[in-house]
Design a protein around this nucleic acid. Structure first.
Lengths: 207, 207
DNA sequence: TCACTCTGTTACACTATGTATCTTATGGCA
DNA sequence: TGCCATAAGATACATAGTGTAACAGAGTGA
């Protein structure tokens, strides 16, 4: 189906589908939605759906890819000074969540989104690695860099999910700073340093 | 349907369904599975499925609830000494993942599981709070305890997901220690302490 | 205006779902 | 051992959703 994405009719149809779909997901959940429902809510014919998307999944991907591309477009070059002064990737994430709250609620809650969350996690992990490189410091105990990066990214995404789930009890700015602070300092002030058995270096531990 | 769960016929039927379902999910994915498929794979009649479960979702919940209950049953009282010597909730998690790898793969990859992952996150968050309380220390900067707990739990789950996704490149023991270490000390050794703007206390930041 | 493209209408075959009815098999117990 | 309660199997059916086809009508842009 070689549709022309520039055609105003096509634009209108697809935008209508995306909007209707987002509304329906929040209203009754991904699984309970039929193609019929989407077509009706978008005030279009059922067959028109099939002309543009193979299935629900593809429409959802269309919705969330746009979201992800938007976040990526916001990314700036990473410097240690920028990160420490609060101009961090996690701050951009919280700003973007504020702008696109409805879509992030779908991303974090629905089911057809595992791949997009995975992409977001990869993205944040890559940025974490870049931040660590920008710091120019040695990694302690030879902990593999990708492990660190995924731990950081997972904590950041998890905290953002918690924030939306709790209906944003704190400001995005506060959350971004907390997230960065926990990532950087962990619980060391709380738990204390004494007695922590550091992991041994890597080679002994290969499975 | 007041079935007797003790009846050996019932036990056999349900166990067969659970096993068949787990195999099918890993084989072709949750969405692509029909009730027919499950019944066939379990070598039973389609109608028998409906006698025991309302839909796919309920069968999946049955599978994963068992998993979650098993993990919960392993939990021990938390002490600071136990946590620091490596006898931590996250170690139990990794041990359990090794024991039930197939089901955890389903839990972490499939779609019908958001609620169970959420429950796992709550569980780990609750244990993190308990660990912090057991330490008897003050929480720095009045950071809300639940924020810390969810950050910790998310990092731990995310790292475990990464580990399975990468086909377990390191031992469970090593992963558990890394996870604990990152949680406790963060990246402070890597990024350094200077220049980090700590979050201001809470009251100014309420949304 | 005209050619082209997109959308709407109607229709159809196919598959999965959920339920009902009746028959057969199984396990516990006197 | 034979009986009884209960679970599983076989068959059938109504319903809903899916995916596709053919044709008519509306919109876009030159």
């Amino acid at each position: 189906m070689p549709f022309n994405p520039q055609d105003p009719r096509v634009k209108k149809t697809r935008q209508g589908m995306r909007d209707a779909f987002a509304r329906l997901i929040l209203q009754k959940g991904y699984d309970a939605i039929s193609i019929q429902d989407i077509a009706e809510a978008a005030q279009t014919a059922r067959i028109t759906f099939y002309r543009h998307y193979r299935d629900k999944e593809e429409l959802l991907t269309d919705c969330l890819n746009t979201l992800y591309e938007e976040l990526r477009a916001k990314a700036k070059p990473i410097t240690l000074e920028g990160v420490l002064s609060g101009d961090s990737p996690v701050r951009l994430l919280y700003e973007h969540i504020e702008e696109q709250e409805m879509l992030y609620r779908i991303l974090f809650s629905s089911r057809g989104t595992q791949t997009v969350i995975e992409r977001l996690r990869h993205h944040l992990a890559a940025q974490a690695m870049e931040s660590i490189r920008a710091s120019g410091r040695e990694i302690p105990h030879d902990i593999p860099l990708d492990i660190i990066a995924y731990h950081v990214a997972s904590g950041q995404i998890g905290l953002a999910m918690w924030w939306l789930d709790q209906n944003k009890p704190y400001t995005a700015d506060y959350m971004a700073r907390i997230s960065l602070w926990l990532t950087l300092t962990g619980l060391i002030e709380t738990m204390g340093e004494t007695g922590i058995r550091l992991p041994r270096p890597l080679p002994d531990e290969r499975a």
